[in-house]
Simulated assay, not measured.
Amino acid sequence: MRPNSRFTEVQPIGLDQVAAAARDDPDVLRLENLDTDIAPPAVAARATADAVLGGQGNSWLPLTGLPVLREAVAADLCTRTGVGYGPDRQIVITSGGTAAVMPVLLAATEPGDPVLLTDPTYAGLLQRVRLAGAYPSLVPLRVEGGYWRLDREALAQVDRAAALLLMSPSMPSGVVFDQGDWEAIAEVCARTDAYLIYDAAMERIVFDGHPRINPCRVDGLAGRTIVIGSVSKEYRMIGWRIGWIAGPAGIMERVRLAAVYNTTVASGFAQLGAAAALSDPSGAGVREAVAEYQARHDMVIEQLAGLPVVRAAGGWSCLLDAQALNLTAQELSDRLLARGRVAATPMTAWGGAVATRHVRLVFSNEPVARLSSLRARVEAALG
C-alpha cells in the first residue's frame, strides 16, 4: 500500500473495539458508547414517518438543506447566540454534527496550521484535525474543586493558531467553560487572528447549576465563531444524522462548497424530523432528558466515591483515572470488561498526557438501577 502522510498520526477511536468485545451480553454495563435509551421527541418521529409515507424529502435538493430546517436552525441559534444568521447564506445542513467538522476545518485552515483543542477532547475532533492536514495543539484541562477546568495559564502561552476547536460541555470530560474561560479564549482568538469552531452539540446538557454561556455572547467572539450543532444529543436523535454549520457569511461560502462536495445532501426525511424537534413549543423533552442524565451521572459518582473519578459539569460521560490506580487506560478497560462486565473506552486517541491516563464512563444509555451495580463491578475489576 502506498504511504499517505495524512494517516501517520491518526489513531483508532477505540470505542468500537470495546463494543465488539462486549458483544451483546445483557449482563455487561454498556458505558463505552455514546448512545442513549431516552426516546427521541415523539413529534420528530411522527414528522419523519409522515415524510417517508408522504413522499416528502426524497430529493437531492436543496444541497445545503431544506429551507424549513435552515429557518428552524436560524431561529434556535438566534435564541442561543443573539445572532441573526441568514438561513440562505449563513447556515448549511450536514449529515450529523461530526460530519460538519471536516468541511469547517478545510474552510478555516491551511495544511500545517495549528488547531487548538483541549486535552482531553472528543477523538472525532482531534483526529479530523489530522486528516484535514492541520495539526492539533493541545491545552490541558486540570482538576479543580472536583471538576475539570480549563488551564488558563497554558492557554495564555498560545502564540499561534488558525482555529480553536472547542466544546462546552465537552466530551469526554464534561467540562463547562465559564465567563472567564470564554474571555480568555476570545483573547487568544484576537491575538492569533483565529476562528473559534464551537461544537455546541451538548450546550444545554448542563448539571448542578453551572453557567450555560454561548461564546457568541462574549465580546469579540461572534464575528469569529463558526457554530456546529446537531439533534443527536440534546434531542436524542442519533440515527437521524442531522447537523448544521452556522457562521459569518464570508467563511460560509467556503464551508458550503466543502460540505456539498463532502456529502452532497443530508437525508430529507430526517431533516423534516429535525425541523419538527427544533420547532416543538414544548421543548421536545430536553429538560426532562437533562434531569435524567444528571441522575445517572450522580449515581456513577456516588458508586465510585473514593476512587479517582472526576465529576462532569454536563454532557453524557465522565472520566476515571487509570494511572492513579497504577494501571494504564487500556489495562483498566480490559479489566473492567473481563472481571467487572463493564464496557469502558480507554482515552488513548482522545488527547495527550491528560487523556491517555483515563477511561471514559458514558452514563447516557444505562438507567440508574443498573448503574447502582457499578461499585461492585469496579471492585471486581480491581480486585
Score class of each variant (00 low, 15 high):
residue 134 A to H: 01
residue 242 I to R: 02
residue 336 L to H: 09
residue 178 D to Q: 13
residue 90 Q to V: 07
residue 60 W to D: 15
residue 134 A to N: 05
residue 279 S to W: 11
residue 352 G to W: 11
residue 7 F to D: 08
residue 327 L to C: 01
residue 155 L to G: 08
residue 333 S to T: 00
residue 360 R to I: 15
residue 83 V to N: 06
residue 334 D to P: 03
residue 341 R to I: 09
residue 269 F to S: 13
residue 226 I to H: 02
residue 116 L to V: 13
residue 72 A to K: 05
residue 266 A to H: 02
residue 319 L to H: 07
residue 83 V to M: 06
residue 68 V to M: 08
residue 363 F to D: 09
residue 151 D to M: 03
residue 156 A to W: 11
residue 200 A to G: 07
residue 105 L to G: 02
residue 93 I to Q: 07
residue 357 R to D: 02
residue 117 L to M: 06
residue 92 V to K: 04
residue 318 C to H: 07
residue 54 G to I: 10
residue 338 A to H: 11
residue 19 A to W: 09
residue 325 L to A: 02
residue 172 P to Y: 00
residue 179 Q to N: 13
residue 158 V to H: 04
residue 135 Y to G: 13
residue 297 H to P: 00
residue 176 V to S: 07
residue 163 A to Q: 01
residue 270 A to T: 12
residue 222 A to C: 07
residue 235 Y to A: 03
residue 366 E to L: 12
residue 120 P to A: 04
residue 277 A to K: 05
residue 38 I to D: 12
residue 272 L to V: 06
residue 170 S to Q: 12
residue 175 V to L: 05
residue 218 V to N: 09
residue 299 M to Q: 14
residue 20 A to G: 05
residue 314 G to V: 00
residue 8 T to M: 14
residue 5 S to H: 14
residue 321 D to C: 09
residue 361 L to C: 05
residue 18 V to H: 02
residue 189 C to S: 11
residue 234 E to A: 04
residue 220 G to W: 01
residue 4 N to L: 15
residue 378 V to H: 06
residue 257 L to A: 15
residue 68 V to L: 14
residue 44 A to D: 02
residue 3 P to K: 12
residue 106 L to H: 14
residue 44 A to H: 05
residue 273 G to F: 01
residue 29 L to E: 09
residue 311 R to K: 10
residue 148 W to T: 01
residue 358 H to T: 03
residue 123 A to W: 03
residue 92 V to W: 03
residue 159 D to I: 12
residue 328 T to Q: 00
residue 46 R to A: 13
residue 263 T to M: 13
residue 223 G to L: 10
residue 346 P to V: 04
residue 343 A to Y: 12
residue 259 A to S: 15
residue 362 V to Q: 11
residue 186 A to R: 01
residue 334 D to H: 00
residue 97 G to C: 02
residue 135 Y to E: 14
residue 61 L to N: 13
residue 203 E to P: 07
residue 289 A to E: 09
residue 314 G to E: 01
residue 378 V to F: 13
residue 311 R to D: 08
residue 90 Q to R: 10
residue 359 V to T: 01
residue 267 S to M: 07
residue 171 M to V: 14
residue 11 Q to L: 15
residue 222 A to E: 06
residue 11 Q to D: 11
residue 54 G to M: 07
residue 212 R to C: 08
residue 337 L to T: 03
residue 260 V to S: 11
residue 96 G to A: 01
residue 73 V to L: 05
residue 268 G to F: 04
residue 177 F to T: 03
residue 382 L to K: 09
residue 319 L to W: 05
residue 30 R to G: 09
residue 155 L to V: 08
residue 311 R to H: 04
residue 126 L to E: 04
residue 99 A to Q: 14
residue 154 A to R: 12
residue 205 I to H: 06
residue 58 N to C: 13
residue 255 V to R: 06
residue 362 V to A: 11
residue 335 R to T: 03
residue 78 C to M: 13
residue 121 T to D: 08
residue 283 G to W: 06
residue 364 S to R: 05
residue 35 D to H: 14
residue 152 R to Y: 09
residue 61 L to Y: 14
residue 332 L to T: 00
residue 133 G to R: 01
residue 379 E to M: 15
residue 201 A to I: 08
residue 170 S to R: 10
residue 331 E to T: 03
